[in-house]
Amino acid sequence: MIKKFTLRINKKTYTVEADENMPLLWVLRDVLDLKGTKYGCGVGSCGACTVHLNGIAVRSCQLPISSLANQNITTIEGLAEKGDHPVQKAWLDLDVAQCGYCQAGQIMSAAALLKSNPRPSEEDIDNFMSGNICRCGTYTRIKKAIQQAAAKK
């Protein structure tokens, strides 16, 4: 059913009319034109669509819009006002990206990890990040970038 929803995304309030089952991913991409959050699988298996829900990493392809009232949503566009989150800086410093398609999801996961665990071990990183696929194989650089961001925090 089409309904009206109010969403709080990147500290802004949006009013959206959409099917109540529409996943946040498609609300972001097709309705609000926030294209930073990516579609990779639609079944919660790749992490390309990762956003923060009240500071916690979630897969936006699995979250129906009807479940999001009064929640704070952060996407890659709002991770840091100036785009200079320590994770983003480390990513640039180590030139992590290849094609780049998975990286918004990787960065959102990494930022959430460091929030809950500021000094993650290698194993912590492996465990936390294993839901984010990188088809180009930038995993070793991602790990280094997370460690670098953690060290600078």
Partner: peptide, 23 residues
């Protein structure tokens, strides 16, 4: 000499770069 990806900043900022992002 090592040169950074010229689109690196746009990638980490989630800018619409891909075909999928076009509208």
């Amino acid at each position: 000499t090592p040169q950074k990806n010229v689109e690196g900043t746009k990638i980490v900022h989630g800018k619409p770069l891909f075909g999928m992002d076009y509208t």
